[in-house]
Amino acid sequence: MKAPPFEYHRPSSLDEALGLLAELDEAKILAGGQSLLPLMSLRLGRPEHVVDIGDLGILDSLVVEPDGSVRVGALVTHRQVETSAEVAAHAPLLHAAAPMIGHRPIRTRGTVCGSIAHADPAAEMPAVALACNAAITAVSSRAAREIAAADFFEGYLQTVIEPDEIVTRVQFGPWPRHRRGAVVEQSRRSGDYAIIGLACWLDIEDNTITDAALSFFGVSDTPIRVAEAEDVLRGQAPTQSTFSAAGRTAAGVLRPTSDIHASANYRRHLAAVLTERGLAKATAESGETR
């Protein structure tokens, strides 16, 4: 389990990094290394060049903007997000998801942006980004662009990011006052990737659900929102029976597959269970009644 030969680069400025990415073939960005390095050690990933962005101080900021949106720079780790009171207040789903990722040593190295760029369909952060329709900023020596999370994920470990682009940050829009959210998941052991998980929120005004998001992970080749189930919620009172109806719809729409950890039927059943549990948790924690 040794990586095949590769050349290591550690640029000291963003421009230098972008220059390297523009110039080199088969280059990979190294952030926390918690996904890239295991893949290389297993010889499943074979980049010829590794561009370590660890020295790009410009990317390490975690900032709450005046409008309440939360900007997460490329070097911000899961652990920083997990332990930040600001994040808890302004991006509660991000904060709720972080402790579910691996174990603490992994979270102290792994980055939020790295997780989103890596796009493991069973990972928490991509599903949270999708639930919140976060804005992902990608920069290359050619241009900079902002991509909505809804347009970002293309397939298993695949995104719209080009080989010469760096994700410099992900921005979570302001969290409305009447929004309640939760992240729930089922995994085989504590710290494992989820067999299936759900990042969800409800906007509740006058005991009526005005808007909703159900963003599942571990059930498709990307994180996936189930619009049909969200529709079931809109306009209804936030009750157990509403949640159950949405859960049934989600279970009916999703087409998960089997693997050695769980059967497709199990995942489908859990989609309903987690919808109920996630929405109940979101509303319970806010003091809203079911």
């Binding site: 089997s258 050695i260 950890h261 769980a262 059967s263 039927n265 199990y266 059943h269």
Partner: peptide
């Protein structure tokens, strides 16, 4: 859950 009768075994076998 299969033992408890809550879910059916997948039709195509080969899972857990």
């Amino acid at each position: 859950l299969e033992l408890a009768g809550i879910i059916d075994p997948d039709r195509s076998s080969g899972s857990s």
